[in-house]
Nucleic acid binder design. Structure first.
Ligand code: NAD
Ligand code: NAD
Lengths: 228, 228
DNA sequence: GTCAGGTCGTGCACGTGTTCACAATCAAGT
DNA sequence: ACTTGATTGTGAACACGTGCACGACCTGAC
């Protein structure tokens, strides 16, 4: 109720979902309270960071005891906007788009796959995971009818910017891009990307460093962070 | 030849593949030289950052002119370890694992899919994209024979840590994890993760902030960075 | 009521990453 | 040779993120 002066750092926002996953697991195990130390271990970060991150949500812990799992779960869900469902549209129903459409994990976490669209006439009309593929030209209607705010781009790279523009024009202001292409969106929209080739290249960089060890100092470990 | 005192920052390493992709495009367009300004635009970053990032590779630019595309391409490929192929093993040939196995983009970028393994006896023996699925118990032999240094985990979350341990035991020291689970690896290995549910939750956080605009100050834009 | 043990919340110092600004340098034209 | 215009490479300031250390506070035992 009382408005604290909160502006959650981006790095913290990126970690909240990881804490959330840990908390869901704890809730399933009927754990009542959890210490920052143990939560840190589950999330793969350090305890001070957990406490600082959680402090941005509010003072929900109890000194000497820890955090109430259920209560923290509720507050975190609320903060992340997970008290409501966020219908998602997948654009580009090829190899990757179909795999995503078939994945039940999105729906179960509050991101139901509301629509599938493609530009290829031979794909339109087909059913994938019980959903009919519709033409991308129908995007404005689909987005409006189903209140879609999030779009996933799974088209070839050369189509990605055009698809992004169409999504934005249809009122979709959160975009997750799978295509290996840089796309531009206005500051009023959010964009995140998943580029597997980039990930592999980062791995190969450090792998090569390790292979060439002995040339001088030891190579540092990258230890997954950026890739969340 | 001359060894400069280089230790490339992690943030820079994560951007090099993006520059590389831009350079490949330019090379295809027969562009001779490129300025940091234009490369920055293509990569979606700021020009000063491009220059600083490239300076870690060496002084490969020419003042008043820019960077020679071919030469920079070569130097960057060498730095990222892309002058050789890096055979990859995919563990968990389900929905996602099959989509990855069918993707030609990995092989074309120097990451040939060398092996597919699964624990499910009913999947072993089947062919996916012309490759026979083998049992995960064979990992040590497979990794050694095919000189595999990179593994992709596409199993359910509960199996991820065990699979990671098996990969490490088989000598695979670079891991890309798709499963929504925190896994631990020794400092002598590299780990990167791709967690789509986390990405969607980050998007929903900022989406909610925008939806609730007017409660106070305007929400900041996340602008894809962490997710690369 | 007091003490002991435990854990949170956070100030502070440190390290990393980003951006600005500008001298250094190059090519080309005259 | 000199000037002009362009662009790099980098020092320095700044912003952001991390981790330590410790006071504040809670619970339970006696
Ligand atoms: N499949 C993978 O494992 C994988 C891995 C890494 C990256 N990617 C990337 O993900 C994207 C999709 O990969 P894929 O394997 O599914 O490709 P795909 O070729 O199998 O599917 C692409 C789909 O996009 C559709 N499409 C093309 N242009 C379109 C447009 N303008 N509007 C709407 N739809 C359009 C096509 O009809 C097709 O159905 C690609 O950019 C690829 O590089 C895929
Ligand atoms: N499919 C998607 O679009 C998607 C999206 C986001 C995240 N993910 C994640 O990626 C992972 C794979 O997803 P999926 O849809 O392919 O799941 P899936 O159930 O279709 O496939 C999992 C495969 O892993 C195999 N497996 C199970 N335990 C194993 C073990 N110990 N060793 C080797 N193989 C084992 C199974 O036999 C199965 O073939 C999951 O963790 C999932 O949460 C998938």
């Amino acid at each position: 109720m009382a408005d604290r002066p909160r502006r959650i750092p981006e790095a913290t926002v990126a970690r909240l979902p990881v804490y959330l996953r840990s908390l869901l697991q704890l809730a399933g195990e009927k754990t009542g309270t959890i210490s920052s130390e143990r939560l840190a271990e589950m999330a793969g970060v350090n305890a001070a960071k957990v406490r600082k991150d959680l402090s941005y949500l509010g003072s929900y812990g109890t000194r000497g005891v820890g955090y109430d799992v259920e209560y923290l779960l509720f507050q975190m869900s609320r903060e992340l906007g997970l008290t409501q469902d966020w219908p998602v549209v997948i654009v580009g129903i090829g190899n990757m788009g179909q795999a995503l459409a078939n994945y039940p994990g999105f729906t179960s976490r509050g991101f139901p796959i509301a629509a599938l669209v493609d530009a290829d006439a031979s794909k339109v009309g087909h059913e994938v995971h019980g959903k009919r593929v519709r033409h991308i030209d129908e995007l404005p209607d689909i987005a409006a009818e189903q209140h879609i705010a999030i779009g996933i781009i799974a088209t070839p790279a050369h189509a990605a910017q055009d698809v992004a523009d169409r999504l934005l024009a249809a009122g979709v202001t959160s975009i997750l891009n799978f295509a290996p292409a840089v796309i531009n969106v206005p500051a009023t929209a959010s964009l995140r990307k998943v580029d597997l080739a980039v990930e592999l290249q980062i791995l190969s960089f450090y792998q090569q460093q390790r292979d060439n060890e002995g040339d001088g100092a030891a190579a540092p470990a990258p230890s997954a962070d950026a890739a969340g």
